[in-house]
Design a protein around this nucleic acid. Structure first.
Lengths: 199, 199
DNA sequence: AACCATACGGGACGACCCGTATGGTTACCA
DNA sequence: TGGTAACCATACGGGTCGTCCCGTATGGTT
């Protein structure tokens, strides 16, 4: 009897090449920015990464999952600094959102990617739980401060406010392609911010 | 003398079958509702309409144009009734928007359709000039009444407000698939309406 | 009545992509 | 030294795309 329970999942066989993983993600991001979402096929990604298609399919189940990871992974959600006012906090949050949506790869990927997610029920649920989760936690934190100041109602429909903010930024910049700067964040904060202040 | 200038461009050759036009649009709308945007191919539409593919391509230059006409054509823009308050008017406008975005065909078509429009520069410009134009004219009318009542600033960024409303509805219902009723319109009107009232 | 231009349905075309095999090779572990 | 599994390359069957061509139908013009 030799090591009966030798590690539940002892890694047998040739281990995966860790460089391939990153090479694929990099190739995906580059292709998105250069050729757009539609032209970013699995085959094209594999060729650019110097990898067989098999190697891509072994790690991701499809184009939507791959693109999601390539674009929305290394964005660390910094907590919103306390500016002292609801509108100031909102401006900061929106500014980060605008920058995230207008990054070179994201701008090209978002419309097609969200359409793919929306079309498949099992992926659709992940829009809220993955795309929006970081922003929501920051929005909640921001609201709680505003409520403590008596600046906002405690029973706001947070999800709907978040959908409004994300929808506005996505529609304006992602779909219409309007130029987006800090000014956009300030204007949106003005429109939505005053709407949710306690009367 | 018999009609010397007999029409600058007298239609020569066999005239187009007017029934084919409507049959194609009907087949498109049905396929969208039943199978979704991705599965609504030109070939599938032609087969269902009992028509050759060429007959479709002779009338529309591509899938995006066809789907747009099939879904967003018979929506007549009723002017917003004067409810007496900005928020009341906004609620009516938003309610119409919600209904338009959640119609059986539109809900299935919008994400993919807008992604296709956004990906091609020549179509992207038409999002604002065609999708949003009817809603904008009503929003302007509604604002003018509010300004006359002293309820709103005369120098509001109308386009941005419209993008916010459309984006919120599209994101919430079209992408996330959240249930949409009159309550949604009222909540959005509350969030955005108070934000644009004159201080 | 003859002619001509165009639309018609139907089908074939080459190109592309998908997701899945199938080899021959390579790297790691026991 | 085997065993195992990932590596890359290539090929597969199935699908859609947009274009093109066929033979036919249908109208106006001469």
């Amino acid at each position: 009897m030799v090591t009966v329970m030798a590690a539940p999942d002892a890694p047998r066989g040739r281990p995966r090449d860790s460089r391939a993983h990153q090479a694929i993600l990099t190739a995906t991001a580059e292709l998105l920015a250069e050729a757009g979402y539609a032209a970013t096929s699995i085959g094209a990604v594999a060729a650019r990464a110097g990898v067989g298609k098999d190697t891509v399919y072994r790690r991701w189940s499809g184009k939507a999952e791959l693109v999601y990871e390539a674009v929305f992974t290394q964005t660390e959600a910094v907590p919103v600094p306390d500016t002292g006012t609801l509108r100031g906090d909102l401006t900061v949050l929106l500014d980060a959102l605008v920058r995230e949506f207008t990054a070179p790869g994201a701008a090209a990927a978002l419309p097609g990617l969200l359409a793919d997610f929306a079309a498949r029920p099992e992926l659709r649920a992940r829009i809220r739980s993955q795309f929006l989760a970081p922003a929501k936690s920051r929005l909640v934190e921001l609201f709680e401060r505003a409520v403590q100041r008596g600046e906002a109602d405690p029973d706001l429909p947070v999800d709907l406010v978040l959908d409004t903010l994300a929808g506005a930024v996505f529609f304006h910049t992602g779909l219409l392609g309007e130029p987006a700067g800090p000014q956009l964040a300030a204007q949106l904060a003005a429109i939505v911010g005053r709407g949710i202040e306690a009367r």
